[in-house]
């Protein structure tokens, strides 16, 4: 991506994200009272985040791989099941992947 395209992408996406935030502050509450609208929004958030876990945890370009990120995600899931705070979950995952790579795997 050229520098110009990169800046255009950054600014367009930022503008869109701000418009979405401001839109929420400006629309009448009654519009969102619909059970269906809030259900779709909730499910889309879940799907996006889960999909990002897969992409960030298993994709290497267009290839699916199993490397140090996978045990790190397992450690993160265990920490979440044990109700660890957000920052600890992230640190444990990073430490697991870093440790495995330092040991020469993944």
């Amino acid at each position: 991506m050229t520098t110009t395209a990169l800046w255009a992408t950054v600014l367009a996406a930022s503008l869109a994200c701000f418009a979405l935030k401001l839109g929420g502050h400006l629309i009448p509450r009654s519009w969102l009272a619909s059970e269906r609208v809030s259900r779709v929004t909730t499910l889309v958030t879940v799907a996006l985040l889960v999909s990002l876990v897969v992409v960030q945890g298993f994709a290497d370009g267009r290839t699916l791989t199993v490397d140090a990120r996978v045990p790190a995600l397992a450690v993160a899931a265990l920490a979440l099941a044990l109700r660890a705070p957000f920052i600890l979950v992230v640190v444990l995952a990073a430490a697991t992947a870093a440790g495995l790579r330092a040991a020469g795997w993944g």
Binding site: T45, V46, V53, R69, A72, V89, V91, A93, R101, A102
Partner: peptide, 26 residues
Amino acid sequence: RAWGLDAAAAAAFLALVWPRLAPRRA
């Protein structure tokens, strides 16, 4: 990657979605 920051990002998304996974439909 040597610092595990790619895994940290994956874990962050997992931590974000975790509390939203209780309902069966989710």
